[in-house]
Design a protein around this nucleic acid. Structure first.
Lengths: 183, 183
DNA sequence: CTCCAGAGTGTTAGTGACTAACAGGTTGGT
DNA sequence: ACCAACCTGTTAGTCACTAACACTCTGGAG
């Protein structure tokens, strides 16, 4: 509820122009309460629930697949499973959040950092806590490249106001980057 | 000179534990003077002079090459041209900065965002201001993936204290991600 | 030599994100 | 009725960053 007020204000007034105090006031609580639920102002926009889902999706795919294909298809699968096209309100919220993450430098930076955390989650899932350094290098390289391409699809999807099919866009972006099919 | 004091303090004391005031005091100037030369505290670590070099290196490569290879090799070439292995002081400074950028969340986020700016610079160089949207999609996808893989090489290089050959690491990372040679 | 313009610097006061420490109220179980 | 855990509000403080104004020092024009 605090979050809903926050994003509404960020969209209407602007992220930098909205103080945490304004959010608190709009939600009818004190500023301290906001900080108890969200460590930083940025976290009012950047909650990311997909990391564990992604890791699980990668492990669910056959292990004999090439790394890039395995990681790429797992990400596409996760996006398809988290489909929001049937829920206009959820979709509008997601689009608002994404547009903020793209246009606001502070949010964009933190969003990219959370993508870096996703990369680490993928490495942990595939290599374990103390795995072979050579394998880890390959997994990091593959997941870094895949996430870089997927991020482009996410950006483009938000710029087109969600009119495209997100998993399809991700497949297309991966296709163009790697020249192989991620169907 | 301000920057040198800043990085020394950040390494010795810690980034979050060092106030801009401390940096100013160490450099013998006022805090205001620091802000006149560096827009933010983060910019004391994150000056990035390589974007225009990268764009130029891409345009210098043959246009009939596949996008991924063209961008990847241009980045490797740029790293090779900006070689610091012959200058121990410059190398140590670069390593200190990189380690800060990796271990400090705020710096890591901003560094990833500057990588995003590099991506935009590549798109501008290859597509112009109002280019074909389809070509732009391909360029963004390719450069996003390539930069994701290259970032892994940079991280690994810093973690190994610069003992490896950076351009070689970048080639290796690109190899593992894309399965083609970037020699 | 004088004067002046401009660049670099310092000071002060202020905003806003965020933290620490303490105090009051609310809920659920005994 | 009581207690403990939890959520919340208040206050005071630190720190990044900005705006506005005054000062100094330099180099060139007269």
């Amino acid at each position: 509820m605090i979050q809903a007020h926050a994003i509404r204000l960020f969209v209407e007034v602007g992220y930098d122009e909205t103080a945490v105090n304004d959010v608190a006031e709009a939600a009818g609580v004190s500023a301290m309460t906001v900080y108890r639920h969200f460590a930083t102002k940025e976290d009012l926009v950047l909650y990311d629930e997909y990391d564990p889902l992604t890791a699980a999706a990668i492990l669910a795919r056959p292990g004999d697949e090439p790394l890039v294909r395995r990681i790429g298809r797992a990400l596409v699968d996760t996006a398809a499973a988290a489909d929001v096209s049937g829920d206009p309100a959820a979709k509008a919220l997601l689009l608002d959040r994404l547009r903020l993450m793209i246009s606001t430098p502070a949010l964009r930076a933190r969003h990219l950092d959370s993508q870096y955390a996703t990369q680490s989650a993928i490495v942990d899932a595939l290599c374990g806590p103390a795995g072979d350094p050579e394998l880890e290098f390959s997994v990091r390289a593959a997941s870094g490249a895949v996430l870089g391409a997927v991020h482009v699809a996410l950006t483009r999807w938000a710029e087109h106001d969600g009119r495209d099919d997100l998993p399809g866009l991700m497949r297309e972006s991966l296709n163009r980057a790697f020249g192989i099919s991620f169907g």
